[in-house]
Every structure is written in C-alpha cells, then in structure tokens.
Design a protein around this nucleic acid. Structure first.
Lengths: 241, 241
DNA sequence: TTCGAACACTTGTATATACAATTAACCTTC
DNA sequence: GAAGGTTAATTGTATATACAAGTGTTCGAA
C-alpha cells in the first residue's frame, strides 16, 4: 500500500471509531510525518485527499479538524445511501414497510411508462443512520426489467445495490421539492408532522427503458443536497449570480 | 494567482472552447512544466485536480485525456429568474426590502472568504410572477469585486443581470434544503408560516474570488427543481437507482 | 488588566530530484 | 507480417528543502 494511503486509513479509522469526533483536531502534517516516518509532503497528501473527500476541514495557521457530519449528498453523484452512512462512520439499518406487487395508478404508470393497471413492484423502506431515520424511500419498479426485485431482503441489501447489479444505470431524472410529509411518512421519519421535508422524485433508466420511479423523503432539519459547478465564460450562456 | 491554478484555467479553457474535444490528449506534465516554466510537480497538481473534478482522465504510461462530456442538470444551469418568468409568458416584478452595506457576520464572512466584520453589500429582494411572490433572494456581495452593486435599481434589473455583466461567473456551489421560513420571509412570500420552503444556498465565484453568497427561498407548494442526467458507463462509479 | 508584538506552529505553494510502474512506439528477428 | 525485446515517454509515489501566509499563544509594556 502507498504510504499516503496508509496514513489516510489510519485517520479514517480514528474518525470512524469515534476516537476523533467531529471538530476534533487531527494530527498535523509534521506530526504525521514523524509518526509514519514519511516526508511532510506525503503526510500532506493524505490530509489533502481526506479534505477533498469531506472528512476533514483544513485551516491555514490553525490546523486540520474532523469535519462536522452532515447528511449532505451531492445529488450529482447518485450514491448508495448505506455507503454514505457507513462512510460517515455510522451504522446503517433499514425498515421495510411495503414490498409487494400491485396495479399501477395512472401517475405511477406514467412515470414508469407502462400501461395503467399493469402490475408493478412497490417498496417502501426507511433508511436509518445509527437508528435514526434519515430517508423514507418509496419506489416503483418495472417487473419486466427486474423480475426478482421482490425476492430480495432489503434489510441486508439496499435496492440500490441490487438494481445496480441487475441493470446498469444509463439515465436519471430528478425533481426536488419541499413538502409537508404525510402522517405515515412523518411517523416513519419520527417527525412532528409540520416539519418541512426535502423530497426527491427520481426516475432511472437502463437500456431497456425506465427501471424505477422513486420518492425519497428526507427531514429538512437533517438533510441537504449539495453540488459544485465550474463554468467557462460562454457568451451564449445565461448564468446568474 | 497560484501557478497551478493558472495551468488549470489554461486547460479548462482549451476544453471549454472546443479546441480539445473529448478524448483529445492533454499536454503532459513535462510539456506543461516547460510551457509554464514550473516544476513538474506543479503541473502535475493542476492535472490531478482537473482529474479530481472530472474534466480529464489520467492513464499511467499513456497520458492525460479530455474526459467524455456529461450532462448537467437544468437547475444547475443558473438562469435569470426574470427571463424564466417572462419565458413562461408571465410578468416579472420585484420588491426591494434591503439594499445596504453592513459588517459581515462570521458566517457571511466565511462564505464570502473575507475577514469577519469586513463591510459587505447586502440585499433582500422578492421576485414576483404576475404579482405573486415566487422567490425571496437574500444576497451578500463582495464590494471589492462589485463596488457599484448598491447603486443599481433592482426593480428594473435583477442582481443576476448586473453581476453577470460586471463579473463573469467561473464557479458555483449549491446547497439545497427544505426549511420553515422565518416570519419575515413567510410574509414576503405571502405564506402561511408553517408551509415548507425550498432554500438554495448558492455561492458564485469569478476569477477574483467569491463574488456572492445568496439564499434563495421558494415556497414549496409552487416551486420545484428539475434535472436530467445521462451517464457514461464508468467501472469505478457507484451509481444508485 | 489590556493590548500589541513576537514567536511558534500550522497549512499553502513551489522546486528539484529520484525511482517505480505502465504504456506505446520502434526495431530486430523469424 | 507477426512476435518479442528494447527504449522512450508517460504517470505515480516519495523525499528534502524553502519560503509564504495565517492562527493562536505567550510575554512584556502601558
């Protein structure tokens, strides 16, 4: 293993284990260089990459600190929620509320591009981080593309992991909105009913067509979406500040 | 500007202008080092960061190549809200609530990357479509980059139009969240206080640095963000459905 | 007690150098 | 023409060194 990678893993484990909670100072470049018998630049590379990955924050003159843990997802990168939670050093668990086939309503049919009343798969799962619900995932799946969807144990594997293996993603669309959750969803998220939630409607395609239509609901108080763009100066582009 | 940043921008412009289309070879570390009179490690850092940002792909022994182009979501395409409203065939109007300079709080200073208590420009504007408020825009602006920001009439021209003309955008970051609006913002949006809102925190950069930090608050009942992605098949990418 | 300068320590940028690992082109042999 | 070896060029990792810029602590003077 590369030396800088070994240093990254050492720090990652300190954070994941709870030894270094958020805001805790991380060893300096010089201290790590000494501890691992490497150059400061090698230690620095490890810290820089951890900063790039959001695990630590760096402050010139002050030091490196464990980053505050946020449920922030870069929605540009559609990721496995279990991996995100584990990467933050927390424990993932899931509660499955619904897992059945049923006739598609007009809206669901429209989204999945199947005929109304066609049988589709329907699942509702609450994803938890350290036992705290962070997302209710309601999902409709096209049975022709993923015939064995209902046969998986979604307490052991997320729909993401399964669907990714079965049918690689070629396309996705998102609609992001602020909503008041239904009483049921509020209950699953352990919320006061009036709390605003961020809801992502997501459709995904594979080469065979629309695979899933999902509604992902997150409590507003503990979830954000982030993104970062860079632009060239394009005369025709209408960017706003 | 740091030397590695200048190299990044050079390459970025080559790609953005079309000079170097996707899969085109990028100058090697050694070639860039010679061209820019820097060390190979400095040139290397520029290429590494571009690779990190997804603009180029690197192959040991082979070289660096322009990455295949991926779609960007429409809501990441930052547009002039007045143009959007007019494009829908509706009438745009604005109410200006705040337009002044004031000392930056710690959070605003952090976002604008100025020292705390530095004087910054602050504006709060409600944007209306056919008389109905659709967005409250609270914005902090760096006076060094846009010294005449306060002197404009923002009932006649949006901050976007002005800022775009003054300081072309090079970079933007977004955080999207669901919030309960403050009483004041709820009033400006003509909402029942409990209604959930979608809030976008946006920072934008020009070549001189961070230009603005904006909080854009939309009523959840009449605003969504949309986007559509297409993916290339990437072996390392962990996409979810 | 307060304030400012000095100092120590930190991260940030940069250079020169060295060796490792991989790829692709070229040349020679069959 | 194909195969294999060599070579050159590339990226990857690492070290030592130097200076710049920022933060936080300490100490002395007012």
């Amino acid at each position: 293993m590369a030396k800088f990678s070994a240093i990254k893993q050492h720090i990652y484990r300190k954070i994941a284990s709870g030894d270094w909670p958020e805001h805790h100072p991380v060893s300096s470049e010089n201290a790590l260089a000494e501890q691992f018998s490497v150059s400061r630049m090698t230690a620095r590379r490890a810290l820089q990459e951890l900063a790039e990955e959001g695990l630590v924050v760096r402050s010139k003159g002050s030091g490196t600190y464990v980053a505050p843990i946020k449920s922030q997802t870069s929605f540009m990168a559609i990721r496995n929620i279990a991996d995100e939670i584990r990467q933050r050093g927390h424990e993932y668990s899931a509660q499955v509320h619904v897992l059945r086939h049923e006739r598609a309503t007009a809206q669901v049919a429209d989204m999945l591009q199947v005929r109304e009343h066609t049988q589709v798969f329907h699942s509702v799962i609450t994803h938890c981080e350290d036992g705290i619900p962070v997302q209710v995932e309601e999902r409709y799946v096209n049975p022709e593309i993923v015939p064995k969807y209902l046969r998986q144990d979604y307490r052991q594997i997320t729909p993401h992991e399964y669907l990714c293996a079965i049918s690689p993603l070629t396309e996705a669309s998102h609609v992001i909105e602020a909503v008041t959750p239904s009483a049921t969803v509020a209950q699953w998220l352990q919320l006061d009913k009036a709390e605003p939630c961020l809801r992502i409607q997501r459709r995904t395609w594979s080469e065979q067509g629309v695979v899933t239509y999902a509604l992902l609901t997150h409590p507003g108080s503990r979830f954000t979406l982030g993104g970062h763009l860079q632009f060239t100066a394009q005369p025709h582009s209408s960017n706003t500040l």
